[in-house]
Design a protein around this nucleic acid. Sequence first.
DNA 1: CCCGACACTGAAAGTCATATTCACTATCGG
DNA 2: CCGATAGTGAATATGACTTTCAGTGTCGGG
Lengths: 133, 133
Amino acid sequence: MNATVAKRLPKNYKLVYEILRGAGHGVHFTMGEIYAHAKRKRPAIGFSTVYRGIARLRDLGWIDEIELPGSDSAVYELKGKPHAHFCCGRCGEVADVHYQLPARTIARLAARTGGRVGEAMVTLRGLCRRCSV
Amino acid sequence: MNATVAKRLPKNYKLVYEILRGAGHGVHFTMGEIYAHAKRKRPAIGFSTVYRGIARLRDLGWIDEIELPGSDSAVYELKGKPHAHFCCGRCGEVADVHYQLPARTIARLAARTGGRVGEAMVTLRGLCRRCSV
DNA sequence: CCCGACACTGAAAGTCATATTCACTATCGG
DNA sequence: CCGATAGTGAATATGACTTTCAGTGTCGGG
């Protein structure tokens, strides 16, 4: 099975991971930002490699890909517990919000749709502390 | 200022609105689908006009634009009460779910972020009834 | 040490939904 | 009738991915 996990990650993919791990939980980068960081560390690296690194890490479950509704680009962060996101409509900042829909609520909604619910995403939109003054 | 609201809507924009109103609440169309419908009713209409009609109706608050996380195209529906959406990961169907985060919860989360929260989006992902068998 | 298979790589090109530009044309208040 | 403004269709641009292509490692046998 997932022998990929066991195998050592290619050094470029590792670099991508280190960029996110170095930033820590709760920090969100777009693909472009990650590429910029990677380029600084290893100028010869190409965009495709960073792109593929992100895809691999996502598939391995080491990082989370977050698609904010209404934003044209996804952001990435270290894998963590499920949580909600707050997105500032002015400066675009994305912040983690330690919250998730109660399992009971999800179950109730799932029953209502008649289908099976895999995940529940909660996104808040508004103005962050600095932009709301 | 917004005299636009008072003015009668251009007939093409009205056509776009009628397409959504005719479908009723809870029906979701992509821009391409709306364009196809419009084209059938008025073959000479251009894509840009439909596009601009949707933008206008959205700005007027007559329709809602729903950007599903992870989907590459937005869907539109008649303006209605805030609600959650369920999105089938297999067939792509989007269904309204009559639910919204309790105001108290939103207030609590807003306090936690220190900013001001305008809206809270809840999106469920999973398999719809037909796809989950 | 050499080989073949296969993973990795960078540059370039492709995709797709959404936005915008351009050169008209229709409409409205005077 | 007139000038200003809004509306229009076709064509083009944008931006974020996504894939293709032609190499370039890399590693376990032989």
